[in-house]
Design a protein around this nucleic acid. Structure first.
Ligand code: MN
Ligand code: MN
Ligand code: MN
Ligand code: MN
Lengths: 223, 223
DNA sequence: AATTAAATTTAGATTTGTCTAAATTTAATT
DNA sequence: AATTAAATTTAGACAAATCTAAATTTAATT
């Protein structure tokens, strides 16, 4: 089965929003897709006839098992291309998303698998997000939110949940990338900000907004 | 300026057909594009308003200077991606065309240039076709058609003008790839076929159809 | 020069994906 | 429970790209 770029983007967005709620409602999808609620309704009807989503009028939608498989295949492509762009073509990690947004719709299955081989069948993308394998299986990673880590413990940055260009730009300024080791020196109760030491680099203060969006794991865990 | 995939494919086809005639007529384009003459007419009107082609009713069309630039940029992308697929992802040279047909429409300029750097700014694609540079300049290559080469002279295969899957499959069977050195042993007047020696490999007989579609240069000329 | 054939264009439809404005349903509030 | 607000869907329109069938223009042939 072949899907249009638009259908694929909807499926991916629904998949993404399902992390936060069992049922995805029309307005949320419209916001995520940067379109209007009416357009979403039209598309949901189509995706329903193609058995990619369950959908009842006014009740929101969720992906079927088939829909989930399709979503995982697109996410796989997206993240493999992102890694290719960063590791091989030397793009910055904060500039690859929009390009991968196009590349993820190239259809050849053989291409994805050969790309994966070429990259050494990696498990994580440049933002620390897991790359589903050929069968849609996502590698587990037991990471914790930086805001839950006690002080004086050295941890490694493993992923960033807010991947806006603004966030990534700020992290770059602090010399924080995936794999960077840091230690929390002090937490300020007043505003929830933390003073951290970037190992071998600077000391700085980051806001609670930032610690809530950074995920870490214990040191010495291979990517 | 941004163009749709369809517009880009038309531009590329017109560029291709202009090699054979000053003016490209509607039916030829329809055949090349695998569509109907009526659709071509519609598109030509649009491309004209965008100043990519010169076009007068019933008179055929040709690319403007801007149109040519656009065409060369697409050809550049197509050939760079083809080389990437063969050299890096280890695709066979006879299977990359349809995939490059999709990849050539990815818009990022930075992507193309970084891809070119990654590949070592190559001048020829896996089929021996020249890759236009950033400015649309095409490297010259003084090659000759194999059918014009005298016997007993060692030459190197440099490009293949008929790139159908069937042709490429047959060449693979004869162990002929770009860079392969061959020598014509004998030409048969009866049907124009030639007996050739593939250096360090086999002796075989190839038809005139094949020799007319193979281009060669003198040995020891770097790719 | 008149006729026929071939090439090309127009007219009118269709599909996909989108939009605005209006109608409907569901949820929240008095 | 009635009213208001918010969310969602429908109706109707539009742009892009395509198609078929009919009309028109150009080229080829008698
Ligand atoms: Mn996308
Ligand atoms: Mn990512
Ligand atoms: Mn193409
Ligand atoms: Mn090629």
């Amino acid at each position: 089965m072949i899907f249009s770029t638009s259908e694929e983007n909807y499926i991916k967005s629904i998949f993404h929003l399902q992390q936060f709620a069992e049922l995805v409602n029309t307005n949320a999808l419209a916001t995520e897709m940067n379109t209007r609620a009416a357009s979403v309704t039209d598309m949901l009807k189509k995706l329903k006839t193609k058995k990619l989503v369950q959908y009842e009028k006014y009740q929101g939608c969720k992906l079927t098992e088939v829909g989930k498989k399709v979503a995982l295949a697109i996410v796989r492509k997206h993240r493999l291309w992102e890694l290719f762009l960063v590791d091989k073509l030397r793009f910055d990690w904060d500039s690859v998303h929009p390009i991968a947004e196009e590349l993820e719709h190239i259809s050849s299955e053989e291409l994805v698998n050969k790309l994966s081989d070429f990259l050494g069948n990696p498990s994580f993308d440049p933002h620390g997000d897991p790359i589903p394998d050929k069968n849609g299986k996502i590698p587990l990673l037991n990471q914790q939110c930086l805001s839950d880590i006690p002080i004086k413990k050295i941890v490694t940055i493993s992923s960033v949940s807010n991947q806006s260009a603004q966030m990534l730009e700020m992290l770059k300024h602090y010399h924080i990338v995936l794999g960077t080791q840091i230690m929390i020196l002090k937490k300020f109760e007043f505003d929830g900000s933390s003073e951290i030491k970037v190992i071998k680099k600077n000391v700085c203060i980051i806001s609670e907004q930032v610690t809530k969006n950074l995920f870490v794991h214990d040191i010495q865990k291979k990517k």
